[in-house]
């Protein structure tokens, strides 16, 4: 691949959302959210609790239908009301939940395999091979036969990442993948996220892991009261002397966790 086309590939828009709005009753929790994910980049959503991060992520794959706004995947607009299109779209947009939501009745392997056989229509054998490969990638091939209840929190989250990856998503939406985990387990999940970022996966992640994400993120997106109020590279937002809302917020978090900015 030539340098020019590589650069072009780098800039290619994968997912774009424009002016997404959502209200719960009179509570306007998402206000004109607009952002673009380019190929291979990791955007990090930060902001205070209740700021609307989860709502934005779930609107992005219509788990919460937005009240208004437009969404494009690979330049094709996705209309939420066209069912088939919507299901096909969701297969290409992986999602990781804060509280894992592994299927309780299926083993780790079963969780990764079920969408392959049932949604993708793969044969059981192919699906098993693929699922095992994904479990191996997150370091859990040895735990394939265990049920969610028999896995640690970090292991559960890694299974849920494997489950999303098995569908070959173009984008991964991660909603605080580590906030239900204790510090020791956070590391193992973040290692997987780091591998994905290095491998060029396009991702948007809501998180409070400022230090970790500052190293990997191409951009910080700061949300407060439903609106995106700042977005730029972490370096710019956290630069010494910068007077940004993001910096103040990060300083507060790091004060609590004892990490330096």
């Amino acid at each position: 691949m030539s340098v020019a086309s590589q650069a072009k590939g780098q800039n290619q828009e994968i997912l774009r959302v424009e002016k997404l709005n959502k209200s719960f009753g009179t509570n306007h929790v998402l206000k004109d959210a607009t952002l673009t994910l380019r190929k291979g980049e990791l955007k990090v959503l930060i902001g205070p609790s209740g700021g609307g991060k989860s709502t934005l992520l779930q609107c992005m794959n219509f788990l919460i239908p937005p009240d208004s706004g437009r969404i494009w995947l690979d330049g094709v607009e996705i209309l939420g009301h066209k069912k088939r299109e919507l299901y096909a779209y969701r297969q290409q947009v992986g999602m990781i939940f804060q509280d894992f939501n592994l299927f309780d009745h299926l083993s780790a392997l079963g969780n990764v395999r079920i969408a392959l056989t049932r949604v993708r229509g793969m044969s059981r054998k192919d699906a098993t091979d693929r699922a095992m490969a994904e479990l191996d990638r997150v370091g859990l091939a040895a735990k394939a036969g265990l049920y969610p209840a028999q896995l640690s929190g970090g292991q559960k989250q890694r299974v849920s990442i494997a489950r999303a990856l098995a569908m070959d998503p173009k984008v991964l939406l991660l909603d605080e993948p580590t906030s239900a985990l204790d510090p020791e387990l956070i590391g193992e999940v973040l290692a997987v996220v780091k591998d994905l970022a290095t491998a060029g996966m396009t991702m948007i992640m809501a998180t409070h892991q400022i230090t970790f994400s500052a190293q990997l993120a191409s951009e910080f997106v700061f949300m407060e009261q439903g609106a995106i109020i700042e977005h730029d590279s972490p370096a710019a937002l956290l630069a010494p002397g910068a007077c940004t809302r993001t910096k103040a917020f990060c300083a507060k978090i790091n004060e609590l966790t004892g990490e330096p900015v």
Binding site: K83, Q91, V93, F97, F103, A115, R163
Partner: peptide, 20 residues
Amino acid sequence: GQIKAARALGMNPMQTVLHV
């Protein structure tokens, strides 16, 4: 959450009910 996870994988309502 179980239903949400199934939907996020692209399952339609029928598949969600049947398999999850």
